[in-house]
């Protein structure tokens, strides 16, 4: 299929960017979105132009690096997939596709479609861990009984890949789905109890410090999240913070 692409081009973090039009031809519907971008970049390199910078790593939906805002939706129009898992069969011949970086004041653009998501790392560093010395004295996994239900919910929360689609989608640029998932994965397990109060307090404080907005429960994040992280995790984080503050 032949497509028109409208892509955000920005030389570096200081430059003023703009949307630029490109044409790509003979795109197979079996290609992934990133493969289509590779075709475009090859084209650009061949004509001596600067290729479009975009983040990617695993290309199988597990690393959370790919991060495009495609036709007004984070990771594009499909559900439960990252940009690298998005197939070109979701588009039609002759389509115009708008491609922008994830937008949020806390995610500044580094170049073209690449944004700085280190804010997520700093939130994780503020409490997204358990302090336990596992070197040489690892416990047997079954010595702590955990209900199937709690284990499943913790696992669901832990599937968050930290891609930032929730922030990009949110009209308030709120990071609460991400932080809610990270708080929940520990709050649901006995191992997470020791530092539970400090964890939620510190992670929320860091989230606020990074300049993410305030959640107004639109639920857009839950719909656009490639891992199906549910709003329940935000509610749990709110409960955890209330518990920690009383």
């Amino acid at each position: 299929m032949n497509l028109t692409l409208k892509i955000w081009r920005q030389k570096d973090s200081k430059a003023k960017g703009q949307m630029v039009d490109y044409k790509v031809t003979e795109i197979s519907e079996h290609m992934s979105f990133l493969e289509m971008m590779d075709v475009l970049n090859e084209q650009l390199v061949n004509t001596g132009e600067e290729p479009v910078a975009f983040d990617h790593d695993c290309r199988e939906g597990i690393c959370g690096m790919c991060s495009m805002y495609i036709n007004g939706e984070a990771h594009g129009p499909d559900r439960g997939v990252t940009t690298c898992q998005l197939h070109m069969r979701m588009f039609k011949d002759g389509d115009t596709i708008t491609i922008e970086p994830f937008r949020a004041a806390a995610f500044p653009v580094i170049k073209d479609l690449v944004v700085d998501r280190m804010a997520f790392e700093r939130i994780q560093q503020a409490g997204g861990y358990i302090s336990v010395n596992t070197s040489g004295n690892t416990q047997d996994a079954n010595s702590l009984p955990i209900s199937k239900h709690a284990a499943d919910e913790a696992m669901d929360a832990a599937t968050c890949i930290g891609c930032g689609a929730c922030v990009a989608t949110c009209k308030n640029s709120s990071a609460m789905l991400f932080v809610g998932a990270k708080v929940s994965q520990y709050a649901l397990l006995p191992q997470g109890q020791v530092e539970a109060a400090d964890r939620v307090r510190n992670m929320v404080a860091q989230m606020d410090l990074e300049g993410f907005g305030n959640c107004t429960n639109t639920g857009a994040c839950e719909i656009e999240c490639p891992k199906g992280i549910s709003l329940e995790n935000i509610a749990r984080m709110n409960r955890e913070l209330m518990k920690a503050s009383i």
């Binding site: 007004g72 708008t98 937008r103 009209k171 305030n214 639109t218 719909i223």
Partner: peptide, 30 residues
């Protein structure tokens, strides 16, 4: 206050944003 802070948190707005794909009109226009 929250609206102003949230606008600030957003930074640059999208050239194309399909809000209707993932949220209700009511929730976006409180």
């Amino acid at each position: 206050i929250l609206e102003i802070r949230n606008k600030k948190a957003q930074g640059v707005s999208y050239a194309k944003n399909n809000g209707a794909a993932n949220s209700t009109w009511m929730s976006r226009n409180m």
